[in-house]
Amino acid sequence: MKSTKFTPVPLTKAETDKKWWEIGDFFRRNSLWLLMYCTGCCAIELPPAMTSAYDMERLGMGPMATPRQADILLVSGYLSLKTLRRLIYTYEQMSEPRYVVALGSCPINGGIYHDSHAVINQLDQYIPVDVYVAGCMPNTEAVMNGFVDLMDQIKHKRANGWKKYHENYSWYKANQITSLGEVDVHDEFHE
């Protein structure tokens, strides 16, 4: 007869790491802090999401002041070339793991600005996006739903944008440079 006594199976390093990662994921998905990069008109949907109407704090979410502290980079709307450069800079300053949520149809395909000379059309050419919330503008329920989706993705280990950015760094960089061009003069007025 087989012994019913509990014999602990020694875990390999990879397995322990995975366990820790899962525990970490629990904390991460229940405490998502936003850095609101309010570039477009979609930003107007955020106040109701934060205040008493939808109260995102009950999901453990809240606004933060700087990219270092935040988990989510919230891109709310269209991105001109000037803001894109700063968005990438901000994204690279964030602590890992980091997630990107994009609001509105503008970051998906350009939205109503699709033929503008100054606005980029597809955000995920430049930085990886984990969740898109479509609509012009998406209503607040949709925005909240997007956040819940992100939590779900984190739970199922599908929110891997930040890893992709590392893996395909050269591809992203090339795209960024094609659109923005190299910067020759390094001072405050030329960038």
Partner: peptide, 18 residues
């Protein structure tokens, strides 16, 4: 932690080189 330069600091996404 990831080691970064002193100049790589939060500047509200502005580029400061001085």
């Amino acid at each position: 932690s990831r080691k970064v330069e002193l100049m790589d600091t939060y500047t509200a996404a502005n580029f400061v080189h001085d």
